[in-house]
Amino acid sequence: MTSRDKRYNEVWFTEESSRHLRLSLRVNRELVRKESPYQSIMALETAEYGRMLVLDGAIQLTEKDEFCYHEMMAHVALCSHPDPKKVLIVGGGDGGTLREVVRHDSVERAVLVDIDEEVINTSREFFPSVSCAMDHPKAEIRPMDAMVYMKDHKGEFDVIIVDATDPVDMAAGLFQSPFYRDVWDALSEDGFMVTHIESPFTDAAIMVPAYGAMKEVFPSVHTYLGFMPTYPSGMWVYAIGSKKHDPSEPLREAPEGLKYYTSDIHRGSFAMPPFLSRMLSGEEDVISNY
């Protein structure tokens, strides 16, 4: 939501991360506000983090810190797969993950499937540094339901990256085992699936079931950590489901010009703090903040 501080004649955007936690950023101007068939969309220019994309009141990215998320979503799997040629991105209509995927020389085809074409259009117009790979020769943009798309492309992809919004409304199914089985079917015989499973501090009640649902489908599930200043709590958890390979050790160097990911970051990100390991194993109770 946006509000005006009458004391200073300032406009602020506030995201409610949980019932007890909010994050506010001062807004210089509103770039666009619209409703798609699926969600509300805002692009704002903030004083601290540059341009910001907001869907249904939740921060999706800012220009200042988006690289932290998008590099960790893409490069961990792509650098630990022996030969990733075909990559599917589920969601990610802003194009940030796609931008990172096409950096890899081995990748021949990168398909972005997002059900909301208005998110794609908004990013093209207002976030050119994020959406810049949408016209890359390797890229295919498909504004449609990813579940439908995957059922028609079984066994096709080496890596599937699920760059979903928070697991509410239309995105809720993207964190459940039936969806993960569809992902399994669309992967090649040695494929990886990557997704984020939120924060252990604000979203443990989402994180733990999502991790458990992946373990119902994949023989090997690993978690790794990254930092995202404008996501709830700033501590973000990712998960990889693997059919065969161990994703914790990179097999190749990352592309040049990255700002967050390195091979050392890759290795270190798989080290889980004890409290998080206990949460994921069910040894520690999860208290919902909603």
Rank of each mutant, 00 (worst) to 15 (best):
R7A: 13
H20D: 14
L25Y: 14
V27L: 06
E30K: 10
L31K: 04
S36L: 04
S36W: 02
P37N: 09
Y38G: 03
I41H: 02
I41K: 03
A43G: 11
A43L: 06
T46F: 07
E48I: 02
Y49D: 03
G50M: 08
G50T: 01
M52W: 06
L61G: 00
E63W: 01
E66R: 05
Y69H: 12
E71P: 09
E71A: 03
A77L: 02
L78W: 10
C79H: 00
D83H: 12
K86W: 04
V87T: 04
V87R: 03
V87A: 05
L88P: 07
L88H: 10
G95I: 04
G95E: 00
R99F: 02
E100G: 06
V101R: 02
R124F: 06
F126E: 04
S131K: 06
A133L: 05
M134A: 04
H136Q: 08
K138S: 09
M144I: 09
M144A: 15
M144H: 07
M147P: 00
M147L: 13
K154I: 13
D158F: 08
V159S: 07
A164I: 08
T165H: 08
G173A: 12
F175E: 00
S177G: 04
V183D: 00
W184E: 15
A186K: 06
E189V: 11
D190I: 06
G191V: 05
M193A: 09
V194Q: 05
V194K: 02
H196I: 00
P200M: 10
T202E: 09
A205Q: 14
I206Q: 12
I206P: 00
I206L: 15
A210F: 05
Y211H: 15
A213M: 07
V221C: 11
G226H: 04
F227L: 15
F227Y: 14
F227C: 11
M228S: 09
M228Q: 14
T230F: 04
G234Q: 04
G234P: 10
W236C: 00
V237I: 14
V237R: 08
P247C: 08
S248G: 02
S248R: 15
L251D: 07
R252K: 15
G257L: 11
S263Q: 11
H266P: 08
P274S: 11
L276A: 01
L276E: 00
L280R: 02
S281G: 11
S281M: 01
I287L: 12
